[in-house]
Every structure is written in C-alpha cells, then in structure tokens.
C-alpha cells in the first residue's frame, strides 16, 4: 500500500520526521515549504529512505491565493492524496505580541488563518475523493490560554474548533480529520526554549504516534500520551485559581 502523502510545512521538525516514516513505507510524497534548498535536501533524504517519488512545491502559506495552485499541482502529480498533513507554524514571542499589535496579528495569521486556508482548500479537493485523512498540527497550548503563550494558544485553539467542525462536515464523505496536539518537542522551533528534559519528546517519537493515529483514524491525538492527562487537569482548574497560577 503505497500512500500518496501531502505535507505543508515540510521543513518543520515534526513534519520531516513524519515524512521519513511514510518514506520508509514507500510512499509518494508532495512536500510544500518556503525554502527550496531545504526542500531539495529533504527530498533527497526521503528518496534514500525509500520514498517512491518526492515532488516539491515552494510556497509561503501566508500567500493564501497560491494555495489552489499548490493543490492543483499536488493532485496533478499524484492523482489522489491519501494523507494530507498541515504542519507549518511559528512560535511567537509572547512578550512582543503584547506590545506590538501588528506582530501579534501577523503571527496569528500564520498560525491560524493560513492553516485554515490550507485545510479549506484541501477539504475541497478531498471531499469529492471520498477518502483520505486530513491531519493538522495543533498544540496542547490550544487547550487553555496561559500567560506564557496565549497568542500561540489562541491560534491553535482556533484550529481545534475548525478541525472539529470540519471533521463533522466531512464525516459523511469518508474523509477523516485528525488534530494532533504535541506537548514539548525538541525541534528547530523550540531550540531557544529551556524545555524540561523529562517532558520533551523527540520529533521521531511524536511522528510514530502521528502515523499510528492517521492509520487508526483517531480524532484527537495528544503526543506523547501523558499530555492528555496533564491537559485534562489543566482544563479543570477553576478560572479563579488558574488566573493566580504562574504557568
């Protein structure tokens, strides 16, 4: 079973790890990212690791009018797409978002609006196919706004709600929607953060979970698993207490 896999934000740490897992199973890939040199290096790597075919498309997801060109190209190359993963995003500097409104809006746009634009365009293409999995990377940060990163969290919460509605809409068509909520992952995005070692997963570990969740058509994936329980507790803390906590 050689799957056709489309990945947006393919140079991100988690996306690259997921792509490797699919490559090892002999998938055909369609990779989308901004940086064409990095895309080329990743393509060569995925071919060496067993991908049957890797096509690339250079695009900045914030230029939403280019998204239809991208989906046209992907469906032209592969005919159908079995798995689409929307993985692009940034980690905004929360303090800067508090004083620089333009920056805050731009970051929200990258992490929510452009992702929603991709999901919408992919849904349009996948619905008539009547099959496939549409996966998007959310975050545990979207489960509750914390003073440390609530702009990022708000964008991820938007994805959560959007994915929930889209899942219900596409259910009848046979297309499945998965939202992935990683906890701390050691990637380029988090390289400057001082993450607690015990709670920080490797991209490969997260990618294993993602691949399994896609295969099993799970609705929501917390990865690694223990984040489900951590976030369950965090969501249940009464606001009167939560607002006094330093998180």
């Amino acid at each position: 079973m050689n799957q056709n896999v489309l990945i947006i934000g393919a140079t991100s740490g988690i996306a690259e790890a997921v792509a490797r897992h699919f490559a090892e199973q002999g998938a055909r890939l369609f990779l989308v990212a901004r940086n064409s040199e990095k895309l080329q290096a990743i393509s060569a790597d995925l071919v060496a690791r067993g991908a049957l075919e890797v096509a690339t498309f250079v695009m900045n997801a914030n230029e939403t009018d280019r998204i239809p060109q991208m989906t046209d190209a992907a469906w032209k190359v592969h005919g159908t797409i079995d798995v689409a993963l929307v993985a692009h995003g940034t980690l905004p500097d929360q303090q800067r978002t508090e004083t620089n409104i333009a920056y805050a809006i731009a970051e929200f746009r990258t992490n929510a609006e452009s992702v929603i634009a991709c999901l919408a365009a992919l849904a349009q293409r996948m619905e008539p196919q009547g099959k496939g999995v549409l996966a998007v990377i959310g975050s545990v940060a979207g489960d509750r706004g914390r003073p440390g990163n609530y702009l990022y969290g708000a964008a991820k919460a938007a994805l959560d709600t959007y994915a929930s509605g889209l899942r219900a809409r596409l259910f009848k068509s046979g297309v499945h929607v998965l939202i992935i909520k990683p906890g701390f992952v050691a990637t380029a995005m988090t390289v400057d953060l001082n993450l607690p070692a015990r709670l920080t997963a490797t991209p490969d570990r997260v990618a294993c979970d993602i691949q399994l969740a896609i295969a099993k058509r799970r609705d929501v994936l917390y990865t690694p698993w223990f984040w489900y329980w951590i976030m369950l507790i965090i969501r249940w803390i009464p606001a009167a207490i939560f607002k006094r906590m330093k998180l």
Binding site: A41, A44, A48, R49
Partner: peptide
C-alpha cells in the same frame, strides 16, 4: 544529531553523501 539527512545516494556505486 538533527542534521542527519542523506543528500545523495548512488546504489550502483555505493557512494553516499550525508550530513
């Protein structure tokens, strides 16, 4: 360790370029 991509592999000659 994150810089671990195979940049080119020729399975005829066995020459591999990798990060």
């Amino acid at each position: 360790q994150n810089m671990d991509r195979v940049l080119a592999a020729d399975w005829e000659s066995g020459v591999v370029i990798a990060q």
